[in-house]
Design a protein around this nucleic acid. Sequence first.
DNA 1: CCGAAGTGGAACACTAATGTTCCATTTCAG
DNA 2: CTGAAATGGAACATTAGTGTTCCACTTCGG
Lengths: 191, 191
Amino acid sequence: MSPGESAVAESGARLRTRRAILDAAVGALVGNASATLADIAAAANVGRTTVHRYFPERSDLIDAVSAHLLERIEAATERAKLDAGTAPEALSRLCQEFFEFGDLFTLCFTVPELMAGPAWEEETDGDRALLRLVERGHHEGTIDREMEPRWVQQLLWSLLFSGWSHVRDNGVPKHHALSLCLRSLAKALAP
Amino acid sequence: MSPGESAVAESGARLRTRRAILDAAVGALVGNASATLADIAAAANVGRTTVHRYFPERSDLIDAVSAHLLERIEAATERAKLDAGTAPEALSRLCQEFFEFGDLFTLCFTVPELMAGPAWEEETDGDRALLRLVERGHHEGTIDREMEPRWVQQLLWSLLFSGWSHVRDNGVPKHHALSLCLRSLAKALAP
DNA sequence: CCGAAGTGGAACACTAATGTTCCATTTCAG
DNA sequence: CTGAAATGGAACATTAGTGTTCCACTTCGG
């Protein structure tokens, strides 16, 4: 292996610590939206210096978390197979997939820098798939035509946020919060 | 008037600037959740020194904003007359009242320090009135019994958040966003 | 007109977070 | 075992925000 393949073939160790830092960053930021690099380093059982080695600036780390989040969202959207079944069924599956993320996606609401990047401005494939799905529901007659695609999108996300807040604030079991999300979504969308 | 009545009889000017700073703080924080005291002072057309005269520490200002917000929420809850009409009607009125706040209450989601105070932990009269209202709806048979009081509370707030996000992100007119909120809420709660 | 209240702004010290450098230590593959 | 890779930690400079002090300026009621 010739030297200089910096980004390509990282040693196993590097990949592992990089991942550890990333995970720790997510965990720390979920607990405290303004977590310090020192906090994150501690959470990752790593020196602050090491964090800087992998992510020279704070914004680099934030960007990485952001990218990681986007990837997971896209993956979950694919798993939900939005083309299968009726539109409400597909939306329900998507809701369940997203719910699995746990408080991970709470970050979108609590850490504003996270959404700042250009990647969040443009529509992702997942976004488009969701919007198309709602339109399909309109044609099928399985989704209330007043519930326009973008509103459904807002609704889905804020329902998930509600669900996890319900778990956190009121100590409700997760499965119960999920079923409240699903029921509320289904009823709101029903024609 | 004897000297030393510090907090009681403030001159008109003092009250006016205090209010100006408070309003500016709300506006600045809505625009940027991590607004600086300098930002706020500038927004209020006031020197930073003056801000410190009225609110010695940043937390004092935040507390004042928090109190102001709580007052308005309580006032809006009273105006909604939750005891009148059917439960869904009352909830709809409450939703409209809250919606009037504009992005003001977005602060609850974006400025975590704001909710940190002890005043937000304990249940306010407004909270209790809302929870009782939902129970009344259950007895009347006008609200789905699966929609437990605290969930309805979460739902109401996150719908409002969705509504204003819809306005901000998608440029939808306010009245339209409001009607989407009301419709979604009504359908989700319907038995 | 006068004096007190209210204000603005400059200057300062203090703190917390960030980013950098350097060196000693550990780890691990060959 | 040996050297390169990876890490931890101390020390440092820098920056941004905060809180304080002091003085000059305006304003406004009497």
